[in-house]
């Protein structure tokens, strides 16, 4: 694809007088946070013990693993992100989540006589498959087509301050299922806002300096290699 990206240098030149005002804050921000992004920097944990951290690393990697396209949630330091969420969450929620983490280990020991972090992949998958069963029930978000129309919205209970998942949904699920659901949502957010998630996995192409806007090639009168739409005369 011939995306008309312009180089930083060209862009600065094109901007002329305005360059003096450009902050390029993004790069400063990136530099400041670069350290924690590096795989080998040791975690600076606020809440998790190193044993718990290892379990969280194993869990988030099982949710979003490395594959032949990109590294997984472990290398994207999602466990560090979850530690930060925990450190800024209210005490009852933090406690509840840590209880879920302990329950995960207890379940692993009960079924396979080993803590979660030491389970081989197929046992991990078997355990997570069981505790993610609720997802096969119709999720709330999918229920849209069945909502009776012409209704004023019903008031929902206020969102309790939680940084983990959507706690507006009633917590009638078993502890482990709720724990998995919350952790999966946090993992998704942590991974797809990371450098690895955005650039290596999704290969996101925006937030660039463009000389020309980009669209479907048919807008410019060519057959489109991406969607197969043919140019119209």
């Amino acid at each position: 694809m011939t995306t008309p990206l312009v180089s930083r240098r060209t862009a600065l030149k094109a901007l002329g007088a305005a360059t003096a005002f450009l902050p390029w804050l993004s790069e400063e921000g990136e530099a400041a946070f670069a350290e924690i992004q590096k795989r080998k920097a040791p975690p600076r944990l606020e809440v998790l013990t190193s044993a718990q951290y290892a379990t969280v690393e194993a869990l988030v990697e099982a949710i979003i693993p490395a594959d032949d396209r990109s590294p997984g949630a472990r290398e994207a330091r999602v466990a560090d992100y979850i530690d930060l969420l925990l450190s800024e969450a209210d005490a009852p929620l933090r406690k509840q989540w840590l209880a879920g983490l302990a329950a995960l280990d207890a379940e692993a020991v009960k079924r396979f006589r080993a803590p979660f972090v030491r389970l081989p992949e197929e046992q991990m998958v078997a355990l997570l498959t069981d505790i993610s069963q609720y997802e096969t029930a119709k999720p709330k978000a999918d229920a849209g087509l069945e909502i009776p129309r012409n209704e004023q919205p019903k008031p929902l209970p206020p969102q309790v301050d939680s940084l983990m998942g959507d706690v507006r949904h009633p917590r009638d699920r078993p502890t482990l299922e709720a724990f998995f659901a919350d952790t999966k949502q946090a993992t998704i957010h942590g991974y797809y806002t990371s450098e690895i998630g955005i650039h290596k996995d999704l290969r996101y192409k925006g937030n660039q300096l463009l000389a020309e806007f980009v669209g479907c090639a048919t807008v410019d009168g060519k057959d489109c290699p991406h969607c197969g739409r043919k140019a119209r005369s």
Binding site: G29, F33, L156, Q159, T193, I198
Partner: peptide, 25 residues
């Protein structure tokens, strides 16, 4: 902060704990 990437912040664009935005519900 037009071009800032989400990973520039360890909070990933979440508000700090002393700030809160009202949710739709």
């Amino acid at each position: 902060r037009t071009m800032e990437w989400p990973y520039a912040s360890p909070r990933r664009q979440r508000l700090p704990p002393d700030h809160r935005a009202l949710a739709v519900a």
